[in-house]
Every structure is written in structure tokens, then in C-alpha cells.
């Protein structure tokens, strides 16, 4: 019983992080109708930024998280303006090729700078843990969970309660309807790309304190973000939470019962099963992409 409770808590902590991590992927998919294959490498990029700042300047990854977000935000806008805008209306397949290429470029650039060794951000609180009744709580996991929750809530409030957020949802729901009321979709695309990439890089700061990473881990993270997005349905914060928790449970339980090596394999299987059986997600595409 205790072990089940422990696993459930671990799932919740990890799953909430996955929800936040995938939010940007899900948003850009839902709003721009783009599958960003470079998304995982954006996360890794964030991890290396915070690694560099921590190792050479002693800045805690939590403190540099807003900086990663800002770098990501402007990078997202730039990539959208210079590259994706040019091809996304012509041929959706081109976006896949483009972002796949971007993924390779980022991974190899990181490899040139940092080499392929596994890096980790060894914050002093990385190994600390405490007992809570029958549970062992690792402080760093709790911290990442709390931050993920707060940041996810912030994105939720942005989307639900601000004009910018409403315009993002409006474009996701009906582009033509958005133009009718005077929203400029291409502006919304820029903001969404910025937000999505910002989230990716910011989540990289958290990922870096959770575990070690190499320049080539991006592909695996893209798959995870993809799985989270299709499980819940696109573009909604609630959906990302549902999908994130699903992935958390999947990884924690397969990791414990089958072994660490099975975790990613299980995600892949789940992804194929979902694509095959429930391509519109557990919650059914009730909100986004249905017009």
C-alpha cells in the first residue's frame, strides 16, 4: 500500500512537470496547427542555458528560468517570422521538415559547444529529501512540481482572463471568425510561437535539475510532448494536465515494475495506441480544432 502511495505521489510530481513542459507544444499545435519537431531540442537548449549560467556564474536554475523564458519567447517569434510563416500556409508537410532540420541543427550546435557527455545541474538541494508520514519526498522534485503548477496556472490565467489569451483561443477555435472580429491571426501566431518556445526553454531549466541530459535528448522529449498532447487533446491547459499526469503515471509505474529502460518504450507504445485508437484524445477534441 505504502509503495503504491509513493508511486502515485511520484507520478503526480513528475506528471505536473510533463504537463507544463508540453504546454508549449500543445499550444502551437492547437493554435497554428503546427507539429514542432524541434520542441524537445528547445527544452534541452533551456537546460544548457541554465547549466551554463549555474556552472560559470553560480546562478540557480530557478532564478534563470525567467531568462530562459525570455530567450525562448524571442527565439520563437524570430523562428516564426523568418521561417515558419513562409511555409506554413503553403504546405503543412514543409513545417515538419523545417522543424526536423531545426532539431538537428540545435542538437549538433549543442554537441559542438558542450560535447555529448551527460551534463547535470548539481544544485545543493538536488539530493535532499524528507519524510512525510510513510512517504519519502525528494525536495527537488517537490520544487519542480510546485513551480510547474504555478507556471501552468499562470498560462491558464493568461489564456482565460486576458485579451491576448482570448485572441489566442479565438484563433485556435476559428481563424476566419477571429478575422471577422478584427483579430490579426499572424500576430497571434507570433505571440503563440513566442509563448510556446518560451515555455519549452523555461521547462528546460526544470528538466535540468530533475535529471542529466545530453544534446541529443530532444527527440525523446518531443515524443513525450507529443504523447501528452494527443492524450488530452490540443491546446487546452486542462488537457495538458490530463496528458501530463497520464505520462507521469506511465513512466513511474513502468519504471518501478519493469525497470528504467522500459519507460520510454512504454511512452512509444502508448503513443501508437493512442494514435490508433483515440486520435482525438481522451477528452475528445471538443474544443480545439473542431469547427
Amino acid at each position: 500500500m505504502d509503495i503504491l502511495l509513493q508511486l502515485a505521489v511520484e507520478s503526480l510530481l513528475l506528471g505536473t512537470f510533463y504537463a507544463f513542459m508540453s504546454l508549449g507544444f500543445s499550444l502551437t499545435w492547437g493554435v497554428l496547427n503546427i507539429i514542432n519537431l524541434a520542441y524537445g531540442s528547445y527544452i534541452i537548449l533551456g537546460a544548457y542555458i541554465s547549466y551554463t549560467l549555474y556552472t560559470y556564474a553560480g546562478i540557480d536554475p530557478i532564478l534563470s528560468l525567467p531568462l530562459s523564458f525570455l530567450i525562448g519567447f524571442f527565439k520563437g517569434i524570430l523562428v516564426q517570422r523568418l521561417l515558419i510563416d513562409r511555409v506554413m500556409t503553403l504546405e503543412p508537410f514543409m513545417v515538419l521538415i523545417l522543424t526536423f532540420g531545426l532539431d538537428i541543427v540545435i542538437a549538433n550546435a549543442l554537441n559542438l559547444i558542450f560535447r555529448a557527455d551527460i551534463r547535470s545541474i548539481d544544485v545543493p538541494y538536488a539530493e535532499r529529501s524528507f519524510l512525510l508520514g510513510p512517504l519519502i519526498i525528494t525536495e527537488v522534485k517537490l520544487l519542480v512540481f510546485a513551480l510547474s503548477l504555478v507556471l501552468t496556472a499562470l498560462v491558464y490565467i493568461l489564456l482565460q482572463k486576458t485579451w491576448t489569451g482570448r485572441s489566442i483561443r479565438a484563433v485556435a477555435l476559428d481563424r476566419e471568425g477571429a478575422r471577422l472580429v478584427g483579430i490579426d491571426p499572424s500576430r497571434v501566431f507570433l505571440i503563440t510561437s513566442g509563448l510556446g518556445t518560451g515555455i519549452a526553454l523555461a521547462s528546460g531549466n526544470l528538466y535540468g535539475v530533475l535529471q542529466g541530459f545530453t544534446p541529443f535528448d530532444g527527440g525523446m522529449l518531443t515524443v513525450k510532448a507529443f504523447l501528452v498532447s494527443i492524450v488530452g487533446g490540443l491546446g487546452r491547459v486542462e488537457s495538458a494536465l490530463a496528458g501530463g499526469l497520464f505520462l507521469g503515471v506511465l513512466e513511474v509505474f513502468t519504471g518501478f515494475y519493469l525497470g528504467e529502460g522500459w519507460k520510454f518504450f512504454a511512452s512509444l507504445i502508448a503513443m501508437f495506441l493512442f494514435l490508433l485508437l483515440r486520435p482525438r484524445g481522451l477528452m475528445g477534441g471538443k474544443y480545439y480544432g473542431e469547427t
Partner: peptide
């Protein structure tokens, strides 16, 4: 417009609010 192009996944009030963009 033709086909109405409402934001079906938003509340009625949010749809109206978007009209005041």
C-alpha cells in the same frame, strides 16, 4: 458571416466579448 464562424468552444459571453476586440 455565412456559417456564423462562432467560437464554439467559448462561452456565449466570451464570444460576444471577442466582438469588442
Amino acid at each position: 458571416a455565412e456559417g456564423r464562424r462562432l467560437f464554439l468552444g467559448m462561452s456565449v459571453e466570451e464570444n460576444l466579448m471577442m466582438g469588442s476586440w
